[in-house]
């Protein structure tokens, strides 16, 4: 893994909401190409904010974010930085807890929306790949169905296909299974696993311990706005060093 290039590099990242809500406190993090990193931590520890800073859905207050060689400095609001942020977003896909599919479009229209609107490709040009993606997430038969007719698990799988249509280098998962009925979690996790197998760089905030244990290369435990411990899952789960990690893991593993 060490000889791979760095895909995501976060340096001294701070995020302050309002005036004094210091949510991220100087995070440094390197993620290599093809690496799967799972971020764990108690509620309010800043996991989601960290993830959302990587594609600038939250604007960092200080620090730098580098994705695939493109570096953006927080605090600089120049045209040039804006352009770089758009480029970073094209390189990163994101899946949300509440799916956020576009309800006025069918599954296939959702999937081609990125390539058509953002990359300016012709519809006919993107449809074969979009169909391939829907097939890959097991939803070929839902091609022309609107999201309101899909189950949560199906919606999240379409959302993954929608992100993948942009051919991203990194996928960000923000609690992708938290809004799902328990019996639907498996189908989404299975897609995430296959994505990891194909060598996608993944950063995921998730409570799916099975995914963290079996698929992640690295687990990061956050608390109070910074990671307190990180390492391979077997190490973190069996032998956490930090007292706070132990408490947190004891809590969720029971």
């Amino acid at each position: 893994m060490n000889d791979k290039k760095t895909m995501v590099k976060i340096e001294n990242l701070h995020k302050v909401f309002g005036k004094d809500s210091h949510v991220l406190r100087g995070i440094d993090l390197d993620v290599k190409a093809g690496e799967v990193v799972v971020i764990l931590g108690p509620s309010g520890s800043g996991k989601s904010t960290l993830l959302r800073c990587i594609n600038f859905l939250e604007t960092p207050t200080a620090g730098t974010i580098t994705v695939d060689g493109l570096t953006v400095n927080a605090g600089k609001a120049t045209k040039e930085e804006e352009t770089k942020i758009l480029q970073i977003r094209k390189k990163t896909g994101m899946c949300f807890q509440s799916f956020n599919l576009f309800p006025h479009m069918t599954a296939i229209e959702n999937v081609i929306e990125g390539p058509v609107t953002v990359l300016g490709q012709a519809k006919s040009e993107c449809i074969p790949y979009a169909e391939e993606l829907l097939d890959w997430v097991g939803l070929s038969d839902k091609r022309d169905v609107h999201p309101s007719r899909l189950s949560g698990g199906q919606q999240q799988r379409v959302a993954i296909a929608r992100s993948l249509a942009m051919k991203p280098d990194v996928m960000l998962f923000d609690e992708p299974t938290s809004a799902l009925d328990p019996e639907l979690v498996g189908e989404v996790v299975e897609v995430m696993e296959r994505l990891a197998d194909e060598g996608m760089t993944i950063l995921a905030v998730t409570h799916e311990m099975h995914f963290a244990r079996d698929v992640a290369h690295r687990v990061l435990i956050m608390d109070g706005g910074d990671w307190i411990e990180q390492g391979p899952p077997e190490e973190i789960f069996t032998n956490p060093r930090e007292q706070r990690s132990k408490q947190f893991l004891a809590h969720i593993l029971n």
Partner: peptide
């Protein structure tokens, strides 16, 4: 909902593309 705008932005859309589409 804000989630719609975020999903559009996450795909790389500009403000006006997100508004229009």
């Amino acid at each position: 909902t804000i989630g719609q705008r975020e999903a559009a932005k996450a795909l790389g859309m500009t403000e006006s593309q997100a508004m229009r589409r």
